[in-house]
Simulated assay, not measured.
Amino acid sequence: MMDWTTRLTQALDYLEDNLEGTADIEKAAGLANCSLFHFCRMFEVVFTVSPAEYLRRRRLSRAALDIAAGRDKVIDVALRYGWDSPESFTKAFKRCFGITPSEAKAGSAQLEIWPQIRLAVVLKGDRTMKYRIEERAQAEFVGLPIRTTNTENENLKTIPRFWDTKGKDGTVGAMARYCGKLGLLGVCYDYNPADNSFAYAIAIEKGDFPMSALPAGCETIEVPASVFAVFESRGPMPGAIQKLWKDIYADWFPSSDYEHAGTPDFESYPEQDPPELPDDSPEYRTEVWIPLKRKKMF
């Protein structure tokens, strides 16, 4: 834990020390001893903001302080923090703070500055995480997707709403008729670091049924062969599985020798015991399957 905390602190310090147009998120990921994919996913889940958005807000915050001090021209501040024109800087500044740089320089409003992230180490010995390591061959899932993002916990709202909507319109029931051993699935894939979005699909394992039997809009999702960490959750939905996701990134990954492999991960909703167990029961069981690769060793 301490080694991971030290490396993540180094990555955060690097971003803070290089706000003036030179910070590189891939280099920060290297300082944290993980891939760019894993760094971005971990950062968003733990801090509820992507590295790129955090960097943008910190640059704007530092720029706002420089402007409020009144010593520099707006164009000089814009160039210092990576904007190529005063127009694009003014647009970003107003979107962030609600006022223009000129108004900030005049001291006509109070600015809400985005603070630097600082880590505090909390050792937790009061619980365990139940998981197993399992190998799976290459597979195909079939699912109905939406796009969402971890930024500011947007996915914690859009995904439950997606399940609720598709449950009410009969989509979930139609797909459940063709479930395999894993049950219904919630698959995360196609992560795009440029806009911090990813696809999430209500899915099932591909089987001997025609695609025409499934709701319109379903697509095939390729899942490469991998070693998976499989975590079990018990508790009312969606809170139990949302908490499990955060615990995996905040607690399990930092203390393990693994990072996310960058391929699709998924939630499994198997048949309950008894089958009629409601999803708000404290005994409702789900699993999270995460593909793994070994961390780089120094």
Rank of each mutant, 00 (worst) to 15 (best):
D257M: 12
L111C: 07
P51S: 05
C40L: 00
P274M: 06
A29T: 10
P210F: 09
W4A: 10
R161L: 15
L184F: 06
S50L: 13
L31W: 10
L214R: 01
G82T: 09
K157D: 10
M237H: 07
R127A: 04
T128A: 13
D247P: 01
R136A: 12
P224I: 13
P238Q: 06
I202N: 15
L184E: 08
A32E: 00
D17R: 15
L244R: 13
Y269R: 09
P275L: 09
Y14N: 04
I159H: 03
G70S: 04
P145E: 02
S50G: 15
W83C: 02
I99D: 00
I67G: 02
F298D: 11
E87V: 12
D24P: 01
R95F: 01
T90P: 04
T286S: 14
F141K: 02
C96Y: 01
K130E: 15
M297Q: 10
F43M: 00
E287Q: 12
L292D: 05
A225N: 07
V142D: 00
A240G: 08
D76C: 00
D257I: 14
D126K: 08
L65W: 01
V46C: 03
A120F: 11
R147K: 11
Y81M: 01
D126C: 01
L55P: 04
P270G: 08
Y189M: 04
K293E: 11
G21C: 04
K168I: 11
Y14W: 05
G186E: 03
L123W: 08
R56K: 15
S233E: 04
I204A: 08
L31M: 13
G207A: 08
L65R: 14
C96S: 10
C96D: 14
D72A: 09
E152A: 11
V49M: 12
S226H: 12
F37K: 06
E232C: 07
S212D: 14
E53N: 10
R132E: 15
L214H: 00
Q272P: 11
I159G: 08
F266K: 01
A106D: 13
T220L: 04
M1S: 11
